[in-house]
Design a protein around this nucleic acid. Structure first.
Lengths: 233, 233
DNA sequence: CCAAAAGTGTTTGGCCTACACCCATGT
DNA sequence: ACATGGGTGTAGGCCAAACACTTTTGG
């Protein structure tokens, strides 16, 4: 507990795993630390929670400082408090994940307010290096959670652009679940749920047959399913 | 932050939801507080985490002090840190649940070491009063978790006696899922998983046809399923 | 012999799986 | 015309759901 900033006696922090999907790849937002410990390492965006700040509020603040986005749904998924996880003392961290729409503009991130970061990058999950602290472990746990959750909750749509093709949707499932899905079966099933709105619009700028665009129809979803359904199998 | 014990500046605690199943009822272990705030109210067993203590260790300690049991698997399920949740200041609490075998001896609980408790009771879930702090909310969240988990992980067996009848097993599922299940389908499915060992032994002391006893066969379970299966539908 | 719960099969419909070819578009 | 992905249907197997009566035992 030697030389930590004054927040330190609050002893707990928030770390955020912020997922994005772009160019067929699942990515997460990492910052490069410009402070010791782990200066120069990549880490999850995270920081200390203030004494008078709710944990959720802190998570929203970190998200905002990292991406400029507000009001994104974040889900708490685990709290990490092993004794040795912070080299300078006891820090317990509450971990959240969020899913955000990159929609081609990769420039969601980071605002200069994110003083804890030298820079931020959208790192493809498949290329991730070892992260600072126990952040690799935190990431793995978040990934298990979304893998599980995407199968029965409509979280995929939070990652896709508002208008998307069925192939994009399928690619996202394939990346998260790490397996190939059958195109015909996937479409049949997804359309059978009746939660998508087919648009009178097609993909543009592709050098092959343009695909129809769809929107997630939240009203239909709520109507058809109180709570649960199974998106793959 | 006026007059709390010296632990208070550690600012975080552990609360445990300890489930048991007895006489066809799901119960949880509650303590009656003998300290302010909420003196005389029922609450979940919980206490402050020491500075040099891992969170899991604290959870195990609380479980031990509340029940005399050691080495029971506990799962962390959520962290509660709303600003107003503790009337005397900021306390963040990490919540765990555990499932224990009551096996007719309801006297699991509490040891005198549980200084924070005046007494402890196994309270049927259906009779629960409003609890101290935000503990009712914590309980509800734990219940959602086990309801979900019991459907695809073999946690039911942790609650039952080592030797149990299929009817007991079914009753447990019915209580947790809060719905009736079909006897024939339930048995067919459960036996088809091939994770139970049929014993050469029958129920005793009942005034009707005695049922066969079964054991959960962990070896078969691990062999047949790496990780997942679905126990009901 | 009565009360109470144990134990037992079959049918039906729906869903998941596997599988391959033609179509539309841009270059 | 060719390359690229878009878009489509069917058959078989398996699983889940619905459903009611006979058996065993203790009192």
């Amino acid at each position: 507990m030697e030389n930590l900033p004054e927040h330190f006696d609050s002893l707990f922090s928030v770390d955020c795993v912020i997922f994005g999907f772009d160019e067929g790849e699942l990515k997460i937002l990492l910052i490069e630390r410009n402070e010791d410990p782990f200066k120069g390492w990549f880490a999850l965006p995270g920081y200390f929670v203030e004494h008078t700040e709710a944990i959720e509020t802190a998570a929203q603040r970190i998200l905002y400082e990292s991406t400029g986005l507000k009001g994104i749904f974040m889900e708490q998924f685990y709290t990490f408090g092993a004794l040795g996880r912070h080299p300078q003392g006891r820090v317990i961290t509450v971990a959240y994940y969020a899913m955000i729409r990159l929609t081609g503009n990769k420039e969601v991130a980071p605002l200069p307010t994110a003083h804890f970061a030298k820079r931020a990058v959208w790192m493809p999950v498949k290329d991730m290096p070892e992260l600072a602290f126990d952040h690799s472990r935190i990431f793995r746990k978040s990934f298990e959670k979304i893998k599980n959750k995407i199968s029965y909750q409509p979280i995929a749509f939070e990652l896709l652009p508002e208008k998307f093709t069925l192939t994009q949707l399928q690619q996202l499932y394939e990346v998260v679940l790490n397996k190939k899905l059958d195109k015909r079966n996937f479409r049949k099933k997804m359309l059978a749920y009746d939660i998508l709105k087919e648009l009178d619009e097609k993909q543009k700028g592709v050098s092959y047959r343009a695909a129809k665009l769809y929107k997630f129809d939240k009203r239909k979803y709520i109507k058809n399913f109180q709570k649960e359904l199974s998106f793959t199998r």
